[in-house]
Design a binder for these strands. Structure first.
Lengths: 145, 145
DNA sequence: TATTGTTATACTCTATAACTATA
DNA sequence: TATAGTTATAGAGTATAACAATA
């Protein structure tokens, strides 16, 4: 079968775009991180929220949303899910605000999380290497390719 | 009201992570690009697919999937939607494969697309600037912050 | 047997709108 | 009036599983 099964020498005009590499690199990073934290039973968004609570005990969910660019409407189910798994507890600050804190279970998860995040960062730097600035595309491409 | 409405001096441990900035930067880029191409009635994924067809007339959708990391199962509705809007036509290559081509309408869309993508790239570089390699975090952060 | 395309389905993330209640 | 939280809903994007038809 010599019908040219070799790589179809496909032309990809997106290869020259920084935005394309940025998207692919971010996706690759999220896939790697997602696999690492999978055993913890947290989504990537829950992961970042938990880390923010760990660093800011008593924080309000509206503050988390502002810091991480998550809309109020999307914060509600995230906090509810974390509370349902007993990772987060709420304490009324006033009639409408609640201070969020990690439970022991939540603290344990964060400890594991830090390890996986560090591994993910190491994975990132391993792929990105240290390069000059004009090498931005090459760096980002190296992450997913 | 002097209850300290100033920024809550919130601690964000994610700020030190390359992965965090990568995710935020990619999201910011996609928001900018999404707004630009919105008038064309294409999603971001459809946009990249159309560009690949434009550069590779007669390409099979399985090849597009491989190039852009889109699963076969997800390619089907994308191509169907592009065909439904008469941007793409199919031509049987053999009993199971189809060669994809742009229609006149599809070509017109791609011409507009190229302009918006170039604008998005300019926007990206305007924010990222040209910087050294250790400035990777700063560069990426500058895109979304 | 492996590949191409398809359908069905589910989950994550994001978005807007509208509502309650509290400040 | 503005804010904090909630609910409902929708649209992207991605994932797996299973199937038919063809190579």
């Amino acid at each position: 079968m010599l019908d040219d099964d070799s790589p179809p020498t496909l032309s990809n005009p997106l290869e020259g775009l920084v935005g394309y590499h940025l998207r692919r690199a971010a996706n690759a990073m999220l896939v790697d991180l997602g696999r690492r934290i999978e055993p913890l039973g947290l989504t990537l968004t829950e992961m970042s929220v938990v880390q923010l609570i760990a660093a800011n005990p008593g924080i309000r969910q509206s503050e988390i949303g502002k810091a991480l660019a998550i809309k109020r409407a999307n914060m509600a189910p995230i906090i509810a899910a974390l509370e349902a798994r007993s990772h987060v507890s709420r304490m009324a600050l006033d009639g409408r605000s609640q201070g969020l804190n990690l439970t022991d279970s939540g603290e344990a998860v964060v400890r594991q999380l830090r390890i996986h995040v560090a591994e993910n960062e190491a994975w990132l730097m391993r792929h990105a290497g240290s390069g000059a600035e004009a090498r931005l595309i090459a760096q980002l491409r190296a992450i997913w390719a």
